[in-house]
């Protein structure tokens, strides 16, 4: 099993192996390890389809920024720098960048922002808009899984951090 304290969520939460919560977390070590595997599948899949590893890291960074999650922002910023530091990819992380007139990017960014910040407002036309912008059905699901996984990871990280603060 992976060292759970090396998983992204626990590192970003600030909880280390010396924490009084270590034994409690070890009871759910399988879940924390599977969470890291899901991270790898969402951020760096063997078959990325039409959503590159760089674009995935940039979108995750953007989501962390939109969620005010500084530690995960720093993590995803570093990941983006490793996998694709090209400005054309890195700009996707800037919440103020709306796609710059590129139809595919505009649709991806609009949907990422909506599903991150106000998922209850997503309707059938929003999925149709992704298809209209040229995303394949496989890529619509890939984008949805990326946004959904990162939303989970952000909440897990914040919850763990609150737990850690209460235990120290």
């Amino acid at each position: 099993m992976t060292d759970i304290f090396e998983t992204v969520a626990l590192r970003a939460s600030g909880i280390g192996p010396e924490s009084p919560l270590a034994a409690t977390l070890a009871l759910r070590g399988d879940i924390l390890t599977m969470t890291q595997k899901a991270h790898d599948a969402a951020l760096a899949p063997v078959d990325p389809g039409g959503l590159s590893h760089g674009e995935r890291a940039a979108l995750a960074y953007r989501m962390a920024l939109l969620s005010g999650e500084a530690a995960l922002s720093a993590y995803y910023s570093a990941l983006l720098g490793q996998v694709d530091p090209q400005p054309a990819t890195a700009r996707l992380a800037d919440p103020a960048f709306d796609g710059g007139g590129d139809g595919r990017l505009s649709a991806i960014l609009r949907h990422t922002d909506l599903a991150t910040a106000n998922v209850k407002a997503v309707v059938a036309d929003d999925i149709a808009a992704l298809a209209m912008a040229g995303l394949s059905e496989d890529d619509i699901v890939r984008l949805s899984e990326l946004v959904a996984f990162v939303s989970y990871q952000i909440r897990l990280t914040i919850g763990l951090r609150l737990m850690g603060a209460a235990a120290s």
Binding site: I31, A148, R155, G159
Partner: peptide
Amino acid sequence: LDLILSAALFGWANRLMHT
């Protein structure tokens, strides 16, 4: 810990099922 996990997990599941 289990509550954090179940609530966070539905931040994931809702974003698939609802969209």
